[in-house]
Amino acid sequence: MVASTQALSVQLPKTRVHTQGNNPTVLTDIFKDHVNMVVWRRELSADLLTAIDRYISENSGLNITKSVEAQSIETELEDVLSDAPFKAQLDEMIAEQVAMFACLFELKYIGLRLKVLEHAMCPRFHVDKVPCRLITTFSGPGTQWLAHDAVQREKLGGVSKHLSDEESGLYTDASHIKQLNTGDVALLKGELWEGNEGAGLVHRSPALAQNQRRLILTLDFG
């Protein structure tokens, strides 16, 4: 009887949830097996948001992708946004996030991307083939995502490529689509996290209105 119970438990679908909090210490929840996203709820000042919006409206080509050494992040950022009036404030936030990411996962090098988007970079729901990714939106709408139990995973990717996410049956109701706030710092557990195969967080870039832009930061294992 014990053996059959154990066999049944192996076949049960994985359960995954997200956690959130107003303190960066919540990010350590990413190490819990049943968690596939953690969100540090962080609000940016109105003055900073206005300054960033103005800057990216004039610098839509901003696209920085580089591998950075976590211990030298201040030096790595010296030539980034050198003409931006909010440089010092944004540099401080980026350096903080790099330091936290490096500390959490014991990384020396980190893949950093800071990019202005004028359209949805990944418009379809998908999972990342990475262990874990940090993402934050400094301007514009935040990343959209679906809870694990709201997804029909067999509809992901090429299986339904001729149908939109809305038509494919990937989710059953538009109310299932959740969205990060501007300023939130999120850790998204991917498919390459050991033990998380088939349970990576399903997410996509939000659609942008005409002339709308986003400024996003992502961090990956270097």
Rank of each mutant, 00 (worst) to 15 (best):
V2I: 01
V2M: 03
A3P: 00
A7C: 01
L8N: 03
S9G: 00
T19Y: 06
T19Q: 11
T25D: 15
D29E: 11
K32W: 06
H34Y: 12
S45L: 13
S45Q: 10
A46D: 14
L49Y: 00
I52F: 04
Y55T: 01
S60I: 02
N63Y: 10
E69S: 15
E69Q: 15
A70G: 14
Q71A: 14
A84I: 04
A84R: 04
F86L: 08
F86Y: 12
Q89R: 07
D91L: 05
E92D: 10
M93L: 15
A95P: 13
F105I: 06
K108P: 06
E118A: 00
H119Q: 14
C122P: 08
P123V: 01
H126L: 07
D128L: 11
K129Q: 14
V130C: 10
P131C: 11
R133T: 09
F138L: 13
G142H: 11
A150G: 00
V151E: 06
V151K: 06
G158H: 08
G169D: 09
T172H: 10
D173V: 10
I177K: 07
L188Y: 12
E191L: 13
E197C: 12
L201G: 07
L208Y: 04
N211C: 02
R213P: 00
R213S: 00
L215C: 04
G222A: 15
